[in-house]
Design a protein around this nucleic acid. Structure first.
Lengths: 239, 239
DNA sequence: CGTCCACTTGATGGGCATCAACCGAAGTGG
DNA sequence: CCACTTCGGTTGATGCCCATCAAGTGGACG
């Protein structure tokens, strides 16, 4: 089942890597693509066994985890739909990649993809742009890890997920920016992303609820009545 | 004073970006290069005024700082000799770059460099490799910020600087790995890199000295009798 | 020799980790 | 259909690591 049949109706067509390519490169890329579904929780790439393919995320979320023998671990990257998964130019990776939700991927065999990179410099250019953007994002996250309080950390994560995922709460109710979304992460994963413990995450979420900055329905569903207020919390305004 | 006259005797010739280019691209690059010296403490790029040039560091160290209005700041990158300074493909940068030591730079005007990128895909490829390596390094640092203790943080920074800079303590004294180097950072900058305060940095350095893991001479000079021991501390072995 | 500044050292407190108990939803099996 | 288990999450009590506040030290430089 080849992806080229589906590129026309691909949900992320206009945001993914391929949208930045000239037509000839995009067609060549679609020729080596194949779809793949992966269930939540599955490990895509472990520390010692690299990936034999690269992928563009069509739907779902991937976490990149750095772990130490003593059990400590830190999520060092989250990849969302239209993001690129995999690292060219190296075989040894000290990262674990895992599906935090069910995934739909548009995959490319590693060898074939690297051959295409030789042929189409535009592909390398597009990857460079993405790598630089990821670098910017990871630096933003370093500030969070090093200098923000637990409350600011939780607010930051929620607001950045909201910005990626949220749809207006409902169409009739056209408030300035009322958003609703499902967290793609468990409490444990949130803690690992923020450099906190699950208990602290739980307490800070409770606090945000008590301030009416967010509302929750069930364990994963979140409503943000006003994203600006949440963003202000993320920057440390008021206590 | 053009760099091409000096490429032959350039100290970082075999490690820098240009070493990864085919001869034709390297020559074109050397044609647009010019040397520049910058004194310690000078701000190379502020948040609102982007760089009008890119550079390869010949000697010295550059810090990349992310700052918030309320005064909190975090060093999110350190660039050493042979590293590339500057970000193609964007004009707005929310980073401050500052010389932490005196610098010698091999500079390229932004426009000329970007024109060369169009002409030589190998240049983009080399930048991509570097960007991916920087991304790996920044993820390593995220683990440090999120999950390491103050002692491990200090040991990690010292060992990674030692690995970059150190020469054997002296030739006669051929111990397994006795290293000596000068810190390119003040205590304040160390604290900003590690997400700590200067007081904590000072105390942890004292503690490492009391354990004979390091010795110091003056404020900046450090001797590491055995890098392996320091590395072990950085990973959290023993207290 | 005096001043300044980076750094050190000490005393105290707070924020978050740790340990422990509890809760509720989703199975599971008799 | 209902006890029983499991598991993710919540809540509470306590303690420790590191920040904060404050004072002292020593090297650099005029």
């Amino acid at each position: 089942m080849r992806a080229r049949h589906y590129c026309d109706k691909c949900a992320i067509r206009d945001r993914a890597l391929c949208s930045a390519l000239p037509p000839s490169a995009a067609v060549d890329l679609s020729r080596i693509a194949h779809y793949r579904r992966i269930p939540a929780g599955q490990i895509i790439q472990s520390e010692h066994q690299g990936l034999s393919w690269f992928a563009i995320i069509v739907s779902g979320v991937v976490k990149l985890v750095k772990a130490q023998q003593d059990g400590r671990q830190q999520i060092v990257g989250l990849q969302f739909p239209s993001d690129f998964v995999g690292r060219p130019y190296t075989s040894q990776l000290s990262l674990i990649a895992e599906a935090t939700t069910n995934l739909e991927l548009c995959c490319f065999a590693k060898g074939a993809f690297e051959a295409l990179m030789q042929e189409h410099p535009a592909l390398e250019k597009a990857l460079l742009r993405r790598a630089l953007d990821e670098l910017d994002a990871s630096r933003e996250w370093m500030f969070l890890l090093g200098r923000k309080t637990a409350r600011e950390k939780v607010a930051s994560l929620l607001s950045s997920i909201a910005a990626r995922f949220a749809q207006p709460k409902n169409e009739a109710d056209c408030q300035p920016a009322a958003l609703r979304f499902d967290l793609p992460l468990s409490r444990n994963e949130i803690a690992d992303a923020l450099g906190l413990t699950i208990e602290t995450v739980s307490r800070e979420i409770r606090h945000l609820k008590s301030m009416d900055v967010i509302f929750t329905a069930g364990r994963r569903n979140v409503i943000v009545p006003d994203l600006c207020v949440l963003r202000a919390m993320a920057e440390g305004e008021q206590a």
